[in-house]
Amino acid sequence: MIALELKSISKHFGGVTALENVSFKLEQGKTLGLIGGNGSGKTTLLNVITKMISPNSGEVHFKGKRVDNLPAYKIARLGIGRIFQIGGIFNNMTLLENLFVATNSGNEEEAERILNEVGLVQKKNEKAATLSGGQQRLLEFGRVMIRNDELILLDEPFAGVSEGNCKKIEEVIGKLQKEGKTIILIEHDSKRIKRICNQLIELDEGKLAKKTNID
């Protein structure tokens, strides 16, 4: 089954072309690596999928349904989750509160179980601002996990993260893959991409330059 399909997406910012006529399909349960130089449109692509920005033209389909006409919060409720390139956590809220925003249950046991899985349970009542960069990423992974998102978009989750936390993040991604989640991973390290991803797409100045299967 096709989890995600983009049909001829284009996005311009003034005179800058961030995306031009990008189309691809991603099968459920697969992990897609997204590469390309700085400013090639990778983050913009994720922004279009989650409707944080509207494309100038093209369509986004999730599990066979057109979603680009929905507001961002409704897209999120379909089970599309995201880890941001920068500033993705609520700094002045505790770790538990960060998770509670993401779920409607407010179930503390479940939140603690998730924090345990990402290795942060001992800091559950601390402000998220006190976490290191890698730990903040892991907290974002916790949010995706507690929401049980089906499609997970990862924007350079390893960038600026310590080696130990990189390992932990890779472990968490592995777990999500085993659960059958569909993932898009933006990442520069080609070895890591080969380890994690099934497919690869390269963007070059907003155009889809290359598609490869890794397996």
């Binding site: 507001p71 919060y73 941001f84 609520f90 700094n91 002045n92 809220m93 509160e97 407010g106 929401r147």
Partner: peptide, 25 residues
Amino acid sequence: DGKFGIALKAIRENELIAESLGKDV
């Protein structure tokens, strides 16, 4: 103290991220 209050705090912190977590801001 419930999820309404937590959602409001999340809006105070960052509307865009609250929205990306399914909150109707």
